[in-house]
Design a protein around this nucleic acid. Structure first.
Lengths: 290, 290
DNA sequence: TGATTTTACGATGGCCGTAATCATT
DNA sequence: AATGATTACGGCCATCGTAAAATCA
């Protein structure tokens, strides 16, 4: 199972086309066809239905493994490179929208002042992008926020020895439109909200699948998807009655009421996450922790 | 980073010799040398010191990744094979020594009676062996026991979607030789034992590194190592004053006193663990859970 | 019929083994 | 010296690209 074959397999499964995958990877259609054939013969199973091309059961199962394997592979490469290469003259901090606030900017600026020779950069991206970026070495340090139970860490993709430490916690708040029957409550149980319609805003609120996991429930019907990274825009949708959302911290938006979730007690936590650190990156991480 | 190269790298690092690794893998010394050279040139870092051959810092880091990657790779292969291959006529149950007790045998026998066409087998092995066996498909179902906090699952090597569910829990008990100053206590805090000498018996008691993690302490000095799988033998050592041990359940052995650990509250739990299940393996798993 | 995957085939490159060389104890 | 890693070299196999054939919509 050559990683190359794995990579073209996920490309083919992702694009749903041999030719598109070939173009994406800089191969010939023929080469892709041969690679898939080789992989299938190696594993002794057909991985893809052709015309239309879609993963078989076995292929779908392989896909679940392929992503993490490829991720870990590049994490290993980046990890070794960081340890063996010359000391990097640049440090990139990745942050999710909510985590990369004023404090992040201030810390970054102060460390930059202390080490003028090193170039510090801030890069805002989604949760998954920050986590994989840190794992693969694209980012030196990550700031990730999300909602969990107080004793549990934030769920991160497995890419080896990622260190994460909590920086701050605040209450997790469910956002209702005014006039919603539950909007008057002082506090609320998550289970009561399983039947409501929710907005799936994975970048700025809590991803729905995670919400279902936290509540041990299959509910939480999703209405709109909100791929944006702007809290205000999401709250507009909530005010308009498009659905509920589980957000960090207090909600102050016309037409929206925030109620803290008490059972299970949920917190919005921002965590600092990193792999092995170059010296300047270590300085940045230490600055955040102090 | 071809998995082949990774595999020979861990073999070389493990044996501490190019020639030994070559023999182990069925290669020539020359081939191994070339593979290591290729890997080092690919990663742009020297991974091994030569003469004596020992991993460099970068090599050690790579080793931390290589194991899980290789494990996951074979897990993927096994997973696909199980899903695509013909229905297996044999089911292998792996169990750690403490977990594979009378109940395991009884359940196995009853399922065997119900499905005479399928061959059910019990295989007793260490924790790690059972877990990796389940992950790589060598074992269909695993029974693993160990000590943790009540709310935490047992730590398992990451090999994808392993399902684990608790079967039974009992108190975790620290074993003292009679006459030990703490042996008279009704209950005990783990932190009080950090300065004591412990026997490292990873197969039958709690591995010391895990103990340190549970107590958030660097203590727990290790005296003897006890690689065996026999509780009686370990308790002989305890009685002789060789050190303490953290064990499942009540201790009844001459010269040894057991005291339950209360802070943090620790339990000895046996978990049922499996990946995807063939139908007969599913029957076995269901029998255990009911 | 047309788009798309598969097969055929020749060329290139990679990898292993044999054997000679080099280095360290 | 002797053990053990590296380098040199030749042969084999794998994989890619070009191009023709086959297959499904």
């Amino acid at each position: 199972m050559d990683p190359h074959l794995l990579r073209t397999f996920v490309a083919v499964a992702g694009t749903g086309s041999f030719s598109a995958a070939a173009q994406e990877l800089g191969y010939t259609q023929s080469a892709v066809s041969q690679q898939i054939a080789a992989l299938e013969s190696d594993l002794g199973a057909t991985l893809l239905h052709r015309r239309p091309v879609a993963p078989t059961d076995a292929g779908a199962r392989l896909l679940e493994h392929a992503g993490p394997i490829l991720l870990r592979l590049s994490a290993a490469r980046a990890d070794v490179a960081r340890l063996a290469g010359e000391p990097a003259a640049t440090v990139v901090l990745g942050a999710t929208p909510c985590a990369g606030g004023a404090r992040a900017a201030a810390v970054l600026a102060s460390v930059q002042r202390a080490m003028p020779r090193v170039r510090f950069t801030l890069l805002v991206a989604g949760r998954a992008a920050v986590a994989t970026g840190v794992a693969t070495g694209t980012l030196d340090v990550g700031l990730v926020d999300g909602v969990t139970a107080p004793s549990d860490p934030l769920p991160l993709p497995d890419a080896g020895q990622l260190v994460s430490s909590a920086l701050a916690e605040s209450a997790a708040v469910a956002a209702f439109p005014v006039g919603h029957p539950l909007a008057g409550r002082r506090c609320i149980e998550l289970a009561d909200l399983a039947d409501a319609t929710w907005i799936d805003a994975p970048e700025v609120a809590t991803p729905l699948p995670q919400l279902r996991a936290l509540a041990h429930s299959g509910g939480f019907r999703d209405g709109f998807a909100y791929p944006g990274t702007d809290t205000g825009g999401l709250l507009e949708l909530v005010a308009a009655g498009a659905g509920l959302a589980l957000l960090p911290g207090p909600v102050t938006h016309p037409g929206v009421v925030g109620v803290p979730v008490t059972v299970p007690r949920l917190v919005h936590r921002t965590e600092l996450v990193h792999g092995s650190l170059t010296p300047p990156a270590r300085a940045l991480a230490d600055a955040f922790r102090s």
